[in-house]
Design a protein around this nucleic acid. Structure first.
Lengths: 151, 151
DNA sequence: ATAATTTCTAAACCTAACTTTAGGTCAAGG
DNA sequence: CCTTGACCTAAAGTTAGGTTTAGAAATTAT
């Protein structure tokens, strides 16, 4: 297990907190690409710890694995990612984070309004705008109003 | 379709934007409990629109259906929920929202720090604290540090 | 009265993101 | 040499949150 041999999947799992099976699954999804040693076992680089960390954060932000793969495609597969590489990718992630925060704040403010009047009058909430939805692939605009205008 | 007969499942679906199948599914999960008309068809009250609206918001906040059922259990099943009932329930939801926003802000600030130094040094991030996780039922603490202290 | 919708139930199917299982290999320790 | 533990693959199983399907009954529209 010399430094030049890289990390085993078990070592990677211990350091990231991910299950071994999850790491292998991520490989099938194209999120990580280890090389194999003479015996056919997976060996990982240190940079892969960063890669998996990134995957974990992105997942918390609600990105699907295919989406994360897209984002990570901005990283060179062949060379070790540079500081600039990570900065670029992470900045994109931060933008998403800020968007998500803004959406939730808008939602909270609307909900505050709803609670204020006690009617839970949701038609006024930003919530029902599909553009605000995480995946934004909802079944269309959500309306709770009926002809009379109340719930 | 007189007013005293209540809403059919289709009408409820049109007003909430949910699929008919989803509404029936929510019933199996104990989120809503319509009565049946003479012909055995489901009939809903106006209050059920509010109930479903609430379910939709809570889902966006990442609550699971069982969790939402728990929260809704605070509503009276026998009498029409009062304004005060909804205020109480919605306030609880707002607290969750604020927590979630706070977590994401903390995450963003940490990520900013990481981007600043260019190292994506995640061990410093709040992210790896399982208490911060939505479900908080993860496989335990997540560590990315190795003995040397870098990734 | 008849046709077109809507609704009913039960059961099967679906996707995402994994985990588990089964059966086999490989490396290190005693 | 034998055992133990980490690793391998392929395939099946799991959970959440629904959707789809099929055949029958109820409701609504003409």
């Amino acid at each position: 297990m010399s430094a030049s041999e890289g990390l085993s999947i078990g070592a990677l799992a211990r350091r990231t907190g991910l299950a071994v099976s999850a790491i292998r699954y991520y490989e099938t999804q194209g999120l990580i690409a280890p090389w194999r040693n003479a015996g056919g076992q997976r060996r990982y680089q240190r940079a892969d710890l960063r890669r998996l960390s990134f995957v974990m954060i992105a997942q918390q932000l609600g990105l699907t694995l295919p989406e994360i793969r897209e984002v990570l495609a901005g990283l060179p597969g062949n060379r070790t990612p540079t500081r600039a590489d990570w900065t670029r990718i992470s900045t994109g992630l931060r933008d998403r984070l800020n968007q998500r925060i803004a959406t939730l704040e808008r939602l909270r403010d609307n909900l505050d309004g709803c609670i204020g009047c006690g009617c839970l009058s949701l038609p006024n909430c930003a919530l029902y705008n599909p553009a605000d939805r995480a995946g934004s692939k909802g079944p269309g605009p959500r309306l709770v109003l009926d002809e009379t205008g109340d719930l």
